[in-house]
Nucleic acid binder design. Structure first.
Lengths: 165, 165
DNA sequence: TCTTATTGGTTGCATGAGCAACGGTTTCTG
DNA sequence: CAGAAACCGTTGCTCATGCAACCAATAAGA
């Protein structure tokens, strides 16, 4: 896969090279890290990605509604709903109707759930650290800002034409 | 969501803040770009992500086996298999057994398939350009190298203990 | 050569995610 | 105050995806 010296007809078609294509590379990297991380929270705690995000969000904010979590984790509300149900069944989170607005429910970790979070969070952080250890502190900072810039821009591209209905 | 000034009990638990967590940010960004890009090749050409990757790979390399494509696109062979079947049904790619080794099949775009590729590739590239346009040329270069470093490292973390069985 | 191990690719199965339609609740408007 | 509209969350449906078992073909070893 190294050389690729014989030119052939590549000049005819526009020069789309998958390995250099940004969205593709981002996806590959995201998959790699997701899968590696999943080995921690799936294998060790039986959490799916959505479930992990719910736990992480509640660990961080104590009490949130499902809607908040969905927005925060960029997930569909149905995805969150199912993750919440399964977490509740396993006794990791508790739901309590909001008396002020009974459409929504306030979610929070149970002690058991918080136990998992507190055991999981350091492992997640150490994984992140290990992952980022190939970059200097400066590079890490920079990467962060580049990701943020791109994310903001991508969001604006997607929601481009979305005024009032 | 802006301030977050009240400290509360955040100090007790390890400081895992989802919005700052690298794997999470990578996933969000990858999803955003994937979805935006999918609007091009899904809405306009009815291609799934795997299908799009197959087409892109074949557009780039003319003739490859399914195995090559899987490795190249970081996909499961079953995923590739199904994408290939569907593309073949739609007359976009052709398969021909390799006479030298009849286990494998050589895949290539049909004229119709190449037509799609040639119409799609420039749009994909222009999307990429538009996406990356918030970054300077330098930043783009840098981002690329950071992604590569991280990807290599993540791969090495995953395949860490994988010697001989 | 005959047996055994590997390899490329397909398929059945179970899981997970998105969409859309729905029920129950609150808010807006006439 | 009544009806319409918006909103939160759930659920049925469909489809995509990963895994593992499997078939066919080749390579390796006795």
């Amino acid at each position: 896969m190294a050389s690729r010296s014989t030119a052939k007809k590549e000049a005819l078609t526009p020069h789309l090279v998958l390995e250099r294509f940004l969205p593709y590379r981002l996806n590959v990297l995201a998959s790699l890290t997701s899968n590696a991380l999943a080995q921690i929270y799936a294998d060790r705690f039986g959490l799916s990605i959505p479930a992990w995000r719910v736990v992480a969000t509640l660990g961080q904010y104590d009490v949130r509604t499902a809607r908040d979590i969905a927005a925060h984790g960029v997930m569909h509300k149905s995805t969150v709903s199912r993750a919440v149900s399964s977490l509740e069944e396993r006794g990791l989170i508790a739901r309590r109707p909001n008396e002020d607005d009974r459409r929504e429910e306030l979610l929070a970790l149970t002690p058991a759930g918080r136990g998992i979070y507190e055991s999981l969070a350091p492992q997640a952080l150490s994984f992140e650290e290990q992952l980022a250890s190939v970059l200097t502190a400066q590079e890490q900072e920079l990467l962060g800002s580049l990701i943020d810039k791109l994310s903001r821009h991508a969001r604006s591209l997607t929601h481009e034409g979305e005024g009032e209905p």
